[in-house]
């Protein structure tokens, strides 16, 4: 039985399914995060109260974070394993290789956008999660950060990278789950574009807004 379970999860499709499940959870998290961010438009007090309320929801808050961290780590670990396995699957590259159709910028860059997202997430956590919020509340720290155009640019670029990752990832996870239908797949792809734009623009616009009102 043990060997059976190991085989399922270490098989190529098993790994892909883990990517798809964790990827879907991460998109779900981004949706919640984006919703939370809208509180910033309601002003400093509303946002700070919201943040405090969120952190006071123990033990759910800690459980949620550990869950999210695990999901993220699985996604990254398997993503890296797949990347190296796929590199190894063609030791000698083609002199000339053309895309006869299908490949997109998003699909081609999945592992690279993934790593860039990881770097961004670490930086983002250091900037806004693992900081002392007892003296200066989080909204004021955020506003101060995004009064600097350099930080705004950096966040906007990061969101473009996330958008590219999702531009392939969203459609791809349905295919990995085995959902492909002549009628619904074009809809899923269109929905993927909408999700990509909502996430990319939705997150990217807040730093710009804060820069403008600063």
């Amino acid at each position: 039985m043990n060997g059976y379970i190991t085989f399922l999860f270490s098989s190529s499709i098993g790994k892909k399914l883990l990517m798809a499940v964790t990827g879907l959870c991460l998109i779900g998290f981004l949706a919640m995060h984006l919703l939370g961010n809208t509180m910033a438009y309601a002003g400093a007090t509303a946002f700070n109260d919201y943040a405090k309320k969120l952190h006071s929801l123990e033990p759910y808050f800690t459980v949620f974070n550990i869950g999210l961290l695990t999901i993220g780590l699985v996604h990254i670990l398997i993503g890296v394993i797949l990347f190296f396995e796929n590199l190894r699957a063609r030791p000698r590259k083609y002199e000339v290789f053309k895309n006869p159709g299908g490949m997109t910028f998003g699909s081609r860059t999945m592992p690279y956008t993934g790593i860039l997202i990881l770097i961004f997430v670490i930086m983002h956590l250091l900037k806004f999660t693992f900081v002392d919020k007892s003296v200066i509340p989080i909204y004021q720290q955020m506003a101060a950060t995004f009064a600097n155009p350099g930080w705004v640019l950096m966040y906007v670029v990061a969101m473009v990278i996330v958008a590219f990752h999702i531009s392939h990832g969203f459609w791809s996870l349905f295919q990995t789950f085995g959902i492909n239908h002549p009628r619904y797949t074009p809809l899923i792809m269109r929905l993927g574009l909408v999700v990509t734009l909502v996430i990319g623009i939705g997150f990217g616009i807040l730093p710009v807004y804060l820069l403008i009102i600063a």
């Binding site: 190529s12 499709i13 790994k15 699957a89 699909s107």
Partner: peptide, 28 residues
């Protein structure tokens, strides 16, 4: 030693018999 599918869809475009990736979804 074949690689893992990342749903690029290049295979479908290159297939001389135009076999569709809906079969990959069924495989999954």
């Amino acid at each position: 030693g074949f690689g893992n599918c990342t749903n690029h869809r290049v295979c479908e475009a290159a297939c001389p018999k135009e076999v569709s990736i809906t079969h990959i979804a069924r495989f999954n």
